[in-house]
Amino acid sequence: MTNIVVLGAGYTGMAAAIRAARKSRRHGGRVTLVNASPRFTERLRLHQTAAGQRLADHSIEGVLAGSGIAFVQGWVESIDPQAHEVRLGGGRVLAYDKLVYALGTGTDVSVPGVGEHAFRYDDHAGAVALAERLRSTRQGTVVVAGGGLTGVESATELAEAYPRLRVVLLSRGRPCSMMGPRARAHAERAMRRLGVEVRQDTQVVKVLPDAVELEGGELIDSVATLWTAGTRGLALAREAGFTVDARDRIVVDAALRSVSHPDVYAVGDAAAVSQPFGVMHGTCQGGIPTGLHAGGALADELRGRTPKPFRFGYFHQPVSLGRKDAVIQFVRADDTPRKGWLRGRWAIMYKETVSGSPIHSFKLLKRGLMPAAALKLSSG
C-alpha cells in the first residue's frame, strides 16, 4: 500500500483526497485526510456567517462516507519530510509515502494589533465570534480593513444585516480595482445604497481594542474590526524545510510537486503556482482545480505514469453585495476584465450557482458521477 496523507479538508484538500482515493484505489493507494476541525468550513460563505446567517453544518466524516478515506481530526504541529512523518497534537505521528499539503493560508498579522484585536476569517469560529459581537452591539462603527473582493462582500453583507451600525471600509487603493469600470461602478453604487462608508488610499498602521489607527495618526473608533487585508502561508511549511516564496507558500513545479521535496504536492492557497500569466492568487476558483489535479497526478504516479503539467485560466470574479444584489465580472485567463458582466438578479443566480455549497458535487465526485472537469467549472 502507498500511504497518501492529505493535510487540510477545505475545498482544495477535500477535492484532492476524494479524487486520489477514487483513482488510486486499484493501484494500492490508501488516503488519510487530516483536519483540525470535524466540520467542513465553507470559507466562501464566512461573510454570511459573520452577518448572523445560519448555514448548513456538514461533518467531514459525513462527506467522506463510503469513499474509503480515513479521517483523522488533529492539529498539524510539524512535518518531517526526511522521515516522511507528520506530527499532530497530542504526540500522534502519521507516516506518509506521498503528502498533499492543502492547509491554505492565514491572515497576515504583520500590522501591530491585528493578531490580538481584529476578527479574522481564518476559520469558522472567527466568523461566529464576529457575529456574536455584532448581535450584542446596538450602535457604533464596524471597520472592515481591505478593499478586495472579500472586504467588499463583508462590508455590504454586514451593512445590510446590521443597519443600526456604521460600516467603514478601509482600502489602500480603490475597492474592486481588479474589475472593469462598469462592474466596479455597480459595486460602488451598492455600497453607497447600503450606507457603507468607503475610505480609499488609506493605510492602517495599528489595530487597537476599540479603534484603528491610520497613517498620520487619525483614529477611527470601532466596536469590531474585521481584517481582510492580505494573507500568507503558514510558518509550518518554511519550518519543515520546503522551498517557499516571500509569502511562505510552497513553490511547486509544473505538476504541483514541491520543488525541494517532489514527494509532496502543494495545492490551493498554500502553493505558489506559476502559469504563463504569472503566479496564481488564492481563490476557490483556482484552488479546487489544483486539488483535483494533484489527486489525479498521484494516481498517475502509482501507475508508473509521469504526471501531466497543471494548466489553469481564470474565468470570472463573482461578488455578492448583500443578499439582494451581486456583480459578476467575466475575465480573461490572466484575471484581467473582459467586457462581459452581470448585475442584480441574474448575478445573484449566477453567484449562487458557482459559489454554492460544493458538498453535493463532492458526493458525486466520490461516486464517480461527476467528472473532475465539471467540478472545476462549478468552483467559484
Rank of each mutant, 00 (worst) to 15 (best):
V259S: 05
A373C: 07
A333R: 13
E160P: 04
R343K: 15
G380P: 01
E85R: 15
S110F: 07
D80W: 07
K339V: 12
Q73W: 09
L364Q: 14
S59A: 15
L364M: 15
G113M: 06
T283H: 07
V251I: 15
G89C: 08
H47R: 07
G217N: 13
S37C: 08
V244D: 03
R232A: 13
W341F: 15
R199F: 06
G180M: 07
V128K: 10
A185L: 13
A50M: 07
T306N: 13
L342E: 04
Q317L: 15
V331D: 00
A145M: 03
A254G: 10
S258L: 09
I18Q: 02
G147P: 01
V72H: 10
L208N: 15
Q329K: 05
G146D: 05
Y96M: 11
G287K: 03
I79L: 12
Y162S: 08
K206Y: 10
S136I: 05
F362C: 00
G216F: 09
S355T: 12
V72K: 12
H84I: 05
L46A: 04
G230S: 10
V212F: 08
A183R: 06
A347R: 02
R182W: 09
K23T: 14
M14I: 11
F330A: 03
D325M: 05
E132M: 05
V244S: 03
A51F: 03
I288D: 02
L7S: 10
L302V: 04
T150P: 00
S37Y: 13
I69L: 13
G356N: 10
W75P: 04
L46Q: 04
L236T: 06
R247P: 03
G304W: 09
S222K: 11
A270L: 06
L342Y: 01
G13R: 06
A125T: 11
T243F: 04
Q139R: 14
L158C: 05
L64G: 01
V244F: 02
V205F: 09
V223W: 12
G28L: 12
R311I: 10
T202F: 00
L302D: 02
V168L: 01
G291M: 04
H360A: 14
E197D: 13
P38E: 11
Q139N: 09
S110W: 07
V354I: 15
A95Q: 13
A299S: 02
G216V: 08
K23C: 08
Q203K: 14
D80R: 10
R174D: 13
E85F: 04
G368T: 05
T137Y: 02
R303F: 05
I60H: 08
G89S: 14
D201L: 10
H84L: 08
T156D: 04
A373I: 06
G146V: 00
A21N: 12
A229E: 03
S378V: 00
K366D: 00
S110D: 11
S110I: 07
V207F: 06
I250G: 01
R22T: 06
V128Y: 01
E218C: 08
V331Q: 01
A190I: 02
G104T: 07
R305T: 10
R193L: 10
A372G: 10
A20Q: 11
K324P: 03
V128C: 06
A246T: 15
T225Y: 12
Y265N: 02
G62Q: 13
R193S: 05
A70M: 12
A240D: 02
A333N: 08
Q82H: 11
I288N: 01
D300I: 04
D263L: 09
P358V: 04
G148L: 02
G173L: 08
I79Y: 02
A17H: 09
G216Q: 10
